[in-house]
Design a protein around this nucleic acid. Structure first.
Lengths: 209, 209
DNA sequence: AATTGTGAACCTCTTCACAGCT
DNA sequence: AGCTGTGAAGAGGTTCACAATT
């Protein structure tokens, strides 16, 4: 298959959520123009993004909202259940444990890890926090597909190394640091400061241009 | 000034953090090649990104870590203090209140808002949660520059509308929905599901290519 | 000898524009 | 008549490659 850009994939995620809301509003048909308007892109962009994966609309009529949502869900792998382990039960980690948006899309947090002896054994959302030293065995048993790393920057690389050793192939990193992973392992970063700093940059330059 | 791409700005944020760590390690000089290696980009990319704003290195020698950090900080507006209001004190909001990375970069959360009467009046990190209906007056008094929106998707657009009315020009949105803002107002989205879904897409397609 | 700064080449992504369906 | 699907054109971002500098 042709290599698809990250930008296209993340727009598909957006369209998916937009379709979800349209369906909630009992809207059955939508045009690329309407999706584009809602998501702040061009209609050609919407059609092009979809065209990499097939033809999901009907000329002259638009797209059936349910069908398109199902198709995009299938493209993104949201038709599957993904088992997730969360490492680091600090502020961010705790917020993610019951972030309903994840569960809604089929990402089920099945294991919680932390290294703080004060936290190990505590129960959050019916899950007992496990010591990270035991990560290897548990990941296998629970068939974990994705690890979310929400540990301090200083220890993030060593945590990721251990996860990779344990066979994890997909990591979502919340630590504000660039991490190295071997080929074949995917890592995506969620660095909340970066967007804030972009706002800072624009505010600062607003009245200069 | 020439229009700078978002990609360049977010890489500058990365370099900034990398320099911070190099300085902590008492490293005084760094080459574009070394920064590139750490952050997973090419050295030409590092030099090009910097070149939009000036010449910060010395040929044959590289960059002084402290100077470069100061310069990037200045470019991004991190030499200033930015007053931030946080709207929505749920799971995510609570995690952000004491997310130390923000404070470290000069983003100070000064006001907390929520509409839940159970929460209004509660104190978190020395800040009393205020009813969102009073947002207008408070934003003025505290000279707020940036609003972080961490409310449910259903109410996010109406919250943003009120913030815009109150004169806010920069918004960081955590609700998983595309929001409309008038020209002149900047909005950045932090949609944690999008990155997870990109991982899902790649896992699903891993063994097909 | 080493490394920056940068125009030019290259590549990738977006938009245009229209043929093709409904 | 209306809207999709898509090749081609255009815009924008990245990498190359080398002159300039220390």
């Amino acid at each position: 298959m042709e290599r698809i850009s990250d930008a296209t994939i993340s727009r598909l995620s957006q369209y998916y959520r937009t379709l979800d809301r349209l369906i909630e509003q009992k809207i059955q048909t939508v045009s690329s123009d309407e999706i584009a308007e809602i998501d702040g892109v061009t209609s050609a962009q919407v059609r092009k993004d979809l065209s990499f994966f097939g033809s999901f609309g009907r000329r002259g009529l638009g797209y059936n909202t349910r069908d398109l949502k199902t198709n995009i869900g299938y493209i993104l792998g949201l038709d599957k259940i993904w088992n997730v382990a969360l490492i680091g039960i600090g502020n961010i980690g705790r917020a993610l444990v019951d972030y309903s948006e994840f569960k809604k899309q089929g990402f089920i947090i099945k294991l919680l890890f932390d290294n703080d002896p004060e936290k190990v054994g505590n129960i959050i959302n019916n899950l007992s926090i496990i010591s990270f030293s035991e990560v290897h065995e548990h990941l296998k048993v629970e068939d974990i597909h994705i690890a979310i790393v929400a540990v301090p920057a200083k220890v993030a690389q060593s945590v990721v190394n251990k996860l990779v050793e344990a066979g994890i192939k997909a990591i979502l990193n919340f630590a504000p640091i660039s991490l190295k992973v071997p080929r074949g392992v995917m890592i995506k970063n969620e660095n909340m400061s970066i967007e804030l700093e972009a706002l800072s940059y624009h505010l600062k330059n607003k009245y200069k241009k």
